[in-house]
Nucleic acid binder design. Structure first.
Lengths: 187, 187
DNA sequence: GAATTCATGTAACTTGTTACATGATTTA
DNA sequence: TAAATCATGTAACAAGTTACATGAATTC
């Protein structure tokens, strides 16, 4: 699963322009998959070449014309295939720049580590709020697409996000209290 | 923080060859940052050009020669700078291919989702075991480097991994039980 | 009147992945 | 003796990021 699959999947909910897709991305799956405009336009071009999507230009009297993309029959079959075959070696991209930082912060000392985790904790709490607003946005898209049966899939997806943020908060709090102990011992 | 920083940071623990680095990577930070041999060699070359590391060839009577890399003074300063300045817009790469799959699986139905999450749960349980073995490996490297003060940093890092896997397991179990309910309602 | 949003793209650059190439040593 | 490990790299390709470019409509 990668960017073109994400695009194909989102377009399958409803026909959209590249610009719409970007918004949909940011509003819904942004917390686990982001994409830049330049990437989206490039991938749309690739997908059209492979005939997984087709586009129509909507001439607009005011403002620039829109190019509306929709998934072709071939595109749907392709998507279903992708979803069916589960790769055996599910090695994910678990890159975590902050953890790398933590691991190497011994070069700067405990105080700095404490400070940076504290800052992080604030970010996680913001993330939590942001995620809670994703829930409303998803509701909105659900109505737009009219596909009520997808609710459970989106709920489960979103729930992963919530578990994730909460686990980060717990870890940060735990680490801070452990670091506090060490700091006090040193005195 | 990115690959060259990881390499610089690991080399700062002790001088190593590219090959050693790969092992260190896989044994320690592999659960949140992986790298391929070809990447490592390329980055070592880049780092040497920038004079953040220097290398010496160790002529070997048996087997191929080794090129041992160590961090220069400039490299250490650079590393400390990187660690000190915390970027304001900490937008991480949170890509999660499996979540993308879940989100789009409405195309195939509840049974398939249940099956795929079940499979995933097994993987998470394996991951948990693997992480527990990382703990031992880190102990080993700790002795090699002789830098006992880094223990707390590594423990906190590893702990994040444990929190992460556990949160995945909890989420999977929760989702499965919810899906089970829906499946039974349909009957 | 300035900034933001809508709307689409190109170009250059950086990073990551896959495949290929070589050859010695150690283990099963 | 075959496979795995040690050890180093190159080349081609794929994907992601950043910067640039254009221009209308809307909002502050």
């Amino acid at each position: 699963m990668s960017l073109p699959h994400a695009i194909l999947g989102l377009l399958n909910y409803m026909p959209m322009t590249g610009y719409d897709l970007k918004k949909f991305f940011d509003d819904s799956i942004g917390f686990f998959w982001s994409a830049q405009m330049s990437q989206i336009y490039r991938e749309l071009k690739n997908l059209e070449e492979k005939e997984y999507v087709s586009s129509e230009e909507e001439i607009s009297t005011k403002g620039p014309n829109k190019r509306i993309y929709s998934v072709t029959n071939q595109g749907v079959s392709h998507l279903k295939e992708l979803l069916t075959d589960v790769p055996e070696n599910i090695d994910e991209d678990n890159r975590n720049a902050f953890l790398l930082r933590v691991m190497l912060l011994s070069n700067l000392g405990i105080e700095e580590l404490y400070f940076q985790i504290q800052k992080r904790l604030k970010k996680y709490r913001k993330d939590l709020k942001a995620l809670q607003s994703v829930e409303e946005k998803l509701q909105h898209y659900l109505q737009l697409t009219g596909k009520t049966e997808t609710l459970i899939y989106w709920k489960i997806t979103l729930n992963r996000g919530l578990h994730d943020v909460k686990s980060h908060i717990k870890w940060a709090e735990e680490s801070l209290s452990e670091l506090k102990k060490i700091k006090e011992e040193k005195k």
